[in-house]
Design a protein around this nucleic acid. Sequence first.
DNA 1: CGAGACCTTGATTGTGCTCAAGAGCGGTGG
DNA 2: CCACCGCTCTTGAGCACAATCAAGGTCTCG
Lengths: 241, 241
Amino acid sequence: MELFVRKLARHSELNEIERTALASLPATRLDIPAHREIVRFGEVVENSCLVSRGLVGRVNQTLSGVRQFASLHLPGEMVDLFSMMAPQAAMGLTAVTRSVILQVPHRALQQVADQYPAVASALWRDCVLQSMIGTQWLFNMGQRDARARMAHLLCEMAVRIGDGPPDVARRYDFPVTQEQMADLLGLTSVHVNRTLMALRREDLVIVARGFVEIVDWKGLVATAEFDPTYLAAGTAKVSGR
Amino acid sequence: MELFVRKLARHSELNEIERTALASLPATRLDIPAHREIVRFGEVVENSCLVSRGLVGRVNQTLSGVRQFASLHLPGEMVDLFSMMAPQAAMGLTAVTRSVILQVPHRALQQVADQYPAVASALWRDCVLQSMIGTQWLFNMGQRDARARMAHLLCEMAVRIGDGPPDVARRYDFPVTQEQMADLLGLTSVHVNRTLMALRREDLVIVARGFVEIVDWKGLVATAEFDPTYLAAGTAKVSGR
DNA sequence: CGAGACCTTGATTGTGCTCAAGAGCGGTGG
DNA sequence: CCACCGCTCTTGAGCACAATCAAGGTCTCG
């Protein structure tokens, strides 16, 4: 919960009172095994899920079972803040890895937001920043080939995990199966495998056994045409409310 | 401006005072020719753009000039509400057709939002609903082939223009070149052409000379696997603030 | 030690891209 | 009024990236 407040404070100004109000929100802790669905499509939810440990994604799925991730959330991120404003889930929520999540009731969140406009503003901004990432993913899917797409994902994660920019994680845990990566990138698992090996052969990055090791950051950024602006946009703090 | 307020009121409750406050926001009118850029990538903006006439899209672009639309906005929609929360544009804004837009200063918008929490809430919700469309596009790009993608776009527009669901426009103006459709769907213009002809040969839809005529709505929905839930999510009004 | 999930690799197929050239149409200027 | 130009649409041929199908290998956990 602390972590969440810190992440909010990185892009929005919050004073001490507002921070403690957020930090003392009620929450139910849930321990979720990997691959388990947390929220099903169409469900009406009354909580937002804060990731405490693990990796959680929002997933869309056709009747035929084809899956596509719409986002991926690290610890300290509120996965479905969106649901405060649109409680009927337009997509499922899945634990990518074994995860611990904190369920925060919308009511409580809403109360804090009502009481402190700066908090409402911060939450709103958080939604916006999340959807800027989504927009980037859309660009990624539409205009880049498999190699560049994969490289872009790995770059993004390096920045997000490294709490950067400018800090970037050169090596990070990423216990995601190749099949899940396929669903993240709109590829097949077979092609993900070949793509990873290609990136490795070129000495750009090693992805194996649950972690990512970036060998040539510059090279990876180049093949991805990665520009982290969209992640940093919130860093230039916008004044309070 | 009226139209904008009506669209907001469709998903969020606003009383008379709040509506008039919104309706009397100051605005600068701009007349923009087709294909002209309105906001450039990276620019720091101080206005949000309300579409009054025409069609405006948010566009991402690589150095090599490959373009990808991230959204498409009809009259009455506020294109870059996002920019209130993240004023540095992460992407360009382009008039797809000849358009009239109203520039509303962030300051003014912010003042109204500060004064009336229900307005702030409505704007926030509007952002969320927009990004739900973006999420659907992502799904579209990742998991559907050209035919289905195109069909999905045409279905979505039919619903959005028809002010539905359940009302759907069986025939609507859509003065978008095939090259622009290509940038919307992550295809090439050549393939857009072939796809449109295929859909026409199957008597599903006719796209020509600036309009769309849906011949077989059910068939089109089926090939697109179109489920309008994501557009309607806001219709079930959530109580005020 | 065995079972299941996950990864790796090969062969083949197909969707959509590239390159290229021609036709239709509307607007502009001589 | 006609000629021309540019933009958009149309169509063809060949190619490439990624999907599909299939089989074998490896790792981990019980």
